[in-house]
Write a protein that binds this DNA or RNA. Structure first.
Length: 423
RNA sequence: GCGGCUAUGGCGAAGUGGUUAACGCACCAGAUUGUGGCUCUGGCAUGCGUGGGUUCGAUUCCCACUAGUCGCCCCA
């Protein structure tokens, strides 16, 4: 009997995991600079939270959730995204009453969606996301977008495209929705089946259709931007002003729609334009969700955030040929030969480690030559060689692997010697 | 959820309806009885994703399943 990893999941092994650590560390560091604090919520929640939060007409809820009944008869769902849970926690812990507003949070963790896997799409994937709750200042929209761009740019990604749009407020959206229905209704049969279904459910999505994108009705379709009321228009203009001030280049795409129900006003997406990146180019998606806190049972509170996938970020790095500055070097490898020396080596390695030095030794009972080879493979900077001769003289031979030079060092000052040599 | 392609050692990759399944990398050992990166020599899959079927015989043909991959849908 042998086992296979579940579909759409992956093991992140040594050699690969360092990249994750690097990226996650960078994300945390950037959040610290922007004054966002980490929040950790459970990996599963009551199903109802996502029905309300994400929206029960969305694809995520309708066909992609990992939902099950627990032993107590509760309906539980593995979180498919992060925002609903953060908002739940915000409300449950009454963070709206905190002195510091807006409340600025971030999270990094696995999300689960039952989808058909392909490049850049998994059933378990890791999202890094931020949420700013409690401010209606367009400057916070710009800040959130800037934070996301900062993450990518700090890693050296160049082939990025930021697309923004405004979905308007409830009033604007309603007007636009009606205009869309009026526009398409008469000739809806000319569009694809999916679009025909969308007309009733969510006519905005028709604009996003890839099949019908060249249909003449698309070009003449009413743009959301023409239906924004005064307030929404001003808000969107402000966001753009701030982005420009921050030196962030963007494109306005009135057809950009987000897949989750809770968005309004600012919506944005960051895409990779790297060659051969495949069908899935979206690296990051986000937007404003002013009604969500109330929907989850809290007071009327503004909110904006984004989520990005670490998997896609790493794929973008690879597509652009960017190598992360990761070093897996070992400081000192202790080679021992002979029983006495082997015993001593155990203590020496221990002493090095106590001193904060990355140290390793042989556990395969290999010969000197093979131990040296192992040290070389581990990219050890120094190798300390201990045999009977050295033991007798109470010294140890320390070899610089780069230069090949070898020095006799008194055993008593060995750790100190290595420590100094490494500086 | 729909359609196409793929599945051989740790990795890459050839191959055939019939005794021993190329090769490269990696790994192990030796040449060098205490010194790595180069070189040379030798070793390393009772096994060809899993389960059935066809056949005297299948890694090779057929079916199902599983997984990956590309595209659609959707999305991070």
């Amino acid at each position: 009997m042998s086992f296979q990893i579940p579909r759409g999941t992956q093991d992140i092994l040594p050699g690969e995991v360092e990249k994750w650590q690097y990226v996650e560390q960078l994300a945390r560091d950037i959040c610290r600079r922007y004054n966002y604090q980490e929040i950790r919520t459970p990996i599963f929640e009551h199903t109802e939270l996502f029905l309300r939060g994400v929206g029960d007409s969305t694809d995520i809820v309708q066909k992609e959730m990992y939902t099950f009944e627990d032993r107590g008869g509760r309906s539980i769902t593995l979180r498919p995204e992060g925002t609903a849970a953060v908002v739940r926690s915000f409300v449950e812990n009454k963070m709206y009453g905190q002195p510091n507003q807006p409340v600025k949070l971030y999270y990094i963790g696995p999300m689960f969606r039952y989808e058909r896997p392909q490049a850049g799409r998994f059933r378990q994937f890791v999202q890094f996301g931020v949420e700013a709750l409690g401010s209606n200042d367009p400057a916070i929209d710009a800040e959130v977008i800037a934070l996301a761009m900062n993450v990518y740019q700090s890693l050296g990604l160049k082939k990025l495209k930021l697309v923004i749009n405004s979905l308007g407020d409830v009033e604007s959206r309603k007007a636009h929705r009606q205009a869309l229905i009026d526009h398409f209704q008469g000739r809806i049969t000319e569009l694809c089946e999916d679009c025909q279904a969308r007309l009733e459910k969510n006519p905005m999505r028709i604009l996003d259709c890839k099949k019908d994108r060249d249909h003449e009705l698309m070009a003449t379709a009413p743009s959301i931007l023409d239906y924004l009321n005064e307030e929404s228009r001003t808000y969107f203009a402000k966001v753009q002003t701030y982005l420009t001030k921050l030196g962030i280049r963007f494109e306005v795409d009135p057809r950009l729609v987000r897949g989750l129900d809770y968005y309004n006003h600012t919506a944005f997406e960051i895409m990779s334009e790297a060659e051969g990146f495949g069908a899935i180019t979206t690296l990051c998606g986000g937007g404003r969700y002013n009604g969500l806190v109330q929907e989850i049972g809290g007071p009327e509170t503004a909110g904006i955030g984004f989520a990005l996938s670490i998997e896609r970020l790493l794929a973008a790095l690879q597509a652009e040929g960017i190598l992360l500055p990761i070093s897996a070097r070992i400081d000192c490898y202790v080679v021992a030969l002979g029983e006495k020396a082997k015993e001593e080596a155990v203590s020496l390695v221990h002493a090095l480690r106590q001193a904060g030095i990355t140290a390793e030794k042989d556990y395969q009972d290999r010969k000197v030559k093979a131990q040296l080879k192992a040290a070389d493979r581990l990219q050890a900077q120094y190798v300390a060689i201990l045999g009977d001769d050295e033991l007798e003289k109470q010294i140890i031979n320390v070899k610089n692997m780069k230069t090949g030079e070898q020095t006799e060092v008194p055993l008593a000052s060995f750790v100190q010697y290595v420590k100094n040599a490494l500086v």
